[in-house]
Design a protein around this nucleic acid. Sequence first.
RNA 1: GCGCUCGUAGCUCAAUCGGAUAGAGCACCGGCCUUCUAAGCCGGGGGUUGCAGGUUCGAUUCCUGCCGAGCGCGCCA
Length: 612
Amino acid sequence: MKDVIQELLGQALHQLVKKDYLPKEVIKEPAEEIEISNCPDPKMGDYASNIAMKLAKTAGLPPMQLAEMLVEHTSRSRHIADITADKPGFINIKLADSCLFKIIIDVLEDGDLYGYRQPEERQRICVEFVSANPTGPLHVGHGRGAAYGASLSALLDAAGFDVHREYYVNDHGRQMDILAVSVWLRYLELCGESVNFPASGYRGDYVYDIARLIRNEHGDHLRHNKFEVSDNLPPDAKPDAKPDAKSGADADTADGAAEDDPGDKEKHIDALIQRARELLGKDGFRIVFKTALHAMLDNIRTDLAEFGVEFDEWFDEHKLDKSGAIDRTLQQLRDAGHVYEKDGAQWFRATTFGDSQDRVVVRDNGRTTYFASDIAYLESKLLRGYKPAIYVFGADHHGYIPRLKAAAEGLGHDPDDIEILLVQFANLYRAGVRLSMSTRSGEFTELRQLREEVGNDVARYYYIMRSHNQHMDFDLEQAKENDLDNPIYYIQYAHARIASLFRKLEDEGVRYNQAIGIDSVKLLTNDYEQQLIRGLLQFPELIQIAAEKRSPHMLAHFSHELARKLHTYYNAERILVDDENLRNARMCLLAATAQVLRNALRIMGCSAPEQM
RNA sequence: GCGCUCGUAGCUCAAUCGGAUAGAGCACCGGCCUUCUAAGCCGGGGGUUGCAGGUUCGAUUCCUGCCGAGCGCGCCA
């Protein structure tokens, strides 16, 4: 509908230019350049344009006068009931009733696809999100990225993009080796060996679960005694050592602390990994490694699936190495002259493209860095034709943006072809007390726990109801215990309420006749009904705006608003009246409202219950 | 020190790439169930949009500086 109005105003501008009332500079080339917004107050009209104020300067006319001229020259359309120039220079447009009523029919006809744009050719884009290292279960911090990424993907799909959802599996790095060693040590523990557990090992119970799995499968075949395992290793740090502990004792007052704890936990764990490889051999280590990896991926996959988050592809990092993609991409950068050697390592000259420093891609020991994989992965995405390739990162990764953009540019791409969205942290509160999210405290960390405590719908909604670049407080008390105040229940209740009316009708043996209803929609003239219809009208436009702004939280607000309109209507008017025409017309409106609520809830990843 | 994201009602947050009187929820106060789900509705109080400047017809939005919060600045992943 907006495009119709843009078109009409565009034509009016052309006419005024043709008559020499206005200079030709005022012509906005694509009509879409003409901004159309919703009126803040429905009494003013349905749509508003600020075009007269925008062009006042180039036209050399006061905004109000220009607005009036435009109104005069806008050709009469059957869609428009009224068009006026108002106060500072806005042009307000009121839609014809017939136009509004038709919305109900549109919704009923389009059904699950109402609000969805379906262009002939869909632009292919990729959304990569979560991508947590498979070294442990997902924690609540990943939850927001998961909920945001999934809803954003659904939103972009609705807006007409061909969306590819991708999870990048870091199955190649040192962290995975540490997990494997952690599992192996727990396995040895189960075998009866009393080995020390390293400070930087993974301590969660899930590590024992995997160890148990291996022992069931392979018995004691991978057992080595504790002396073989720990002899001649560099000393470990204390298990509880916190590098940046801010306790009262500072280095200068308690210099004994350093001597008590001379170990380097990083050197220790690296040596331990090496030892494990030696003792287990290539095959033995692989058994532990693969079992751990698969167990964790299963865990994560199941967790996400239960959360309603699905991916089209799980992209394994190691494939980039195996296929030679990393080498090829690095060679490409070398050929372009963006790589140099220093201190035995190879550096990507990221500073040429605005990064604050150059970045190592090949270490002096010959191994490629994590960033080298990132570059190859980036190239893979762009070669596959995604435009843009969207990354959803936690806010703590914002430092990666300049180097990734630099890499894209170094490979000869437009840096705008990759788009990096940051999701800010969510703080969990219980009864006003902030819960620690560190793994060490073990207080409340797993996404699974959160889902079990508050439910999937609540978790999904709470995660996305705030703008992704806004820090957010997630209060478990409000989310769970006080469900009267929970916005997601409020929305779902509106949907259930409508379903309940249809049930009621059936119980009373009265048939709902949609044909009669559609013929009678013109009876829906009271304020409440008009408000609801306008809500339905706004939905497709909201999808487009929210998608452009990568802001699924706008759907949360929209849904709440639509639910409020429904509840208000329900309280003010009796829906199931005796008059057959009016009753069926109202039921049509409610059916359409339920449909829009369903569509919005689906994009947000929440269910639309028939009863509550 | 440098950089990124922010700062809006008592609390949690909106505000459609700069628009009309800055809006919701929670909390607080007062009304509405013999009738379709009261998990609801209606009404009320509550604001110098962190501070100071600047840009223009118009600023919560854009620019500069300051104050404050969170997070980053490795041949770690």
